[in-house]
Amino acid sequence: MLRLRNHLFSGVRAAFPPPHHHPFSTTTPATSPARFAAEEYLVATCGLTPAQAAKASKGLAHLKSPAKPDAVLSFLAGAGLAKEDIAAGIARHPQLLCCKVDKTLTPRFAQILSIGLSPAQISRIISIVPNIFVAPSMISRLQIYLSLLGTFDVLHSALKRAPYLLGQKLEVFKPNMALLLQCGLTASDLALFSKLLTSKPERVKEIVACAEKLGVAPNTGTFKGALWAVYCVGHDSIGAKMDLLKATLGCSEAELALAVRRAPQLLRMSEGKLSRTLKFLKVDVGLNLQYILLRPPILGYSMQRRLIPRHYFINILKAKGLAKENIDFYSAVCMSENNFFQKFIDAHRETIPGLADAYASACAGKIPHYIKM
């Protein structure tokens, strides 16, 4: 289409020459080069989606030809970077295609290699932080963060959650890391809390103090959940959230405090989801509130993918005399998918033809008609 349009325009120019050009002049006028079609190039050559290309092309509007992007792509591919990582990097930072190979890419790539990263690891970094080639300070921080977090995989996981980590000053990162390690988090845990690592140290201290006020002891697995819950809700909004939970659950303050200590993820649940899950457990499953509050993690499971399928399939087995009447629902819900399948589904597939397929459909949100009770 672009070529056709240029062809038509050239025909128009030939038919209507500029005023200062004599139609019989022997001097050949200079022809203007074709415009660089950035969007088409990003899709056809770089592998971006049309939507990505439309957004990224704005950063390449000044380019007149594909010469520089071609050189960049050739260098990156020759250095051993994966096509999909290059495409992801360009989508994030299209100006990567404008870098000079000799003055920028070559020395920076060598600098990253000197840290000890392999081309495959550099490829994974470029897909997340492609502007590292134009920010030498990021390379020095990359080396420091790698030494602090211990392994490349932990660092990569942290960058996936917080790509701006390499732009963070060490004066912020180090005290946050030290405090979280004191709370019992491991280096692997820190990758999950990379957003917390980049927060202001004063705020991190407030979040830790708020998690402790919930009654969750540091150096426990539950404390990690409490930290994340406080971070997501906001330490200054925890009081209001606790009041909302108490009203939704219809419990006492002491009962709620105990439930939150056992399952801090309750703080991150919306009122709507909590209400729907509570209603299902009380009305459909027949559990009383005290049973639920003593086992609060049950409220966090997906209704469609776990609670509903397991409830209905246990009931159908009971109705056919294939399961005990006193099955503890919480124990059945907490089982891994494989264990539940083996105990309740696989063991009865011959007795009830199609049971396994029906359960798979149920877990996908489709309860078969003959299973509903």
Results as ranks from 00 to 15, higher is better:
245 L>R: 03
246 K>T: 10
246 K>E: 07
247 A>I: 10
249 L>R: 02
250 G>H: 05
251 C>K: 03
251 C>P: 06
251 C>G: 03
251 C>L: 05
252 S>R: 12
254 A>K: 15
255 E>V: 12
255 E>G: 04
256 L>E: 01
257 A>K: 14
257 A>W: 02
258 L>D: 11
258 L>P: 00
260 V>K: 02
260 V>E: 01
261 R>I: 01
261 R>L: 01
262 R>A: 09
262 R>H: 12
262 R>C: 07
263 A>Y: 10
263 A>F: 11
263 A>M: 12
263 A>W: 03
263 A>E: 15
264 P>S: 10
264 P>L: 11
265 Q>N: 09
265 Q>V: 06
265 Q>H: 10
266 L>R: 00
266 L>K: 00
266 L>A: 00
267 L>N: 05
268 R>F: 03
268 R>T: 15
269 M>S: 05
270 S>I: 02
270 S>N: 04
270 S>A: 07
270 S>K: 07
272 G>W: 08
272 G>P: 00
273 K>D: 06
273 K>C: 02
274 L>C: 06
274 L>F: 02
274 L>M: 11
275 S>A: 14
275 S>F: 10
276 R>F: 06
276 R>I: 07
276 R>Q: 13
277 T>Q: 08
278 L>S: 04
278 L>P: 03
278 L>E: 04
279 K>C: 10
280 F>G: 05
280 F>E: 07
280 F>S: 04
281 L>H: 12
281 L>S: 11
282 K>E: 14
282 K>R: 15
282 K>W: 00
283 V>D: 15
284 D>R: 15
284 D>P: 07
285 V>A: 12
285 V>K: 13
286 G>P: 11
286 G>E: 01
286 G>S: 06
286 G>T: 03
287 L>S: 11
290 Q>M: 12
290 Q>R: 14
291 Y>K: 10
293 L>M: 15
293 L>I: 09
293 L>W: 01
293 L>P: 06
293 L>F: 02
294 L>R: 11
294 L>Y: 05
294 L>G: 12
294 L>E: 14
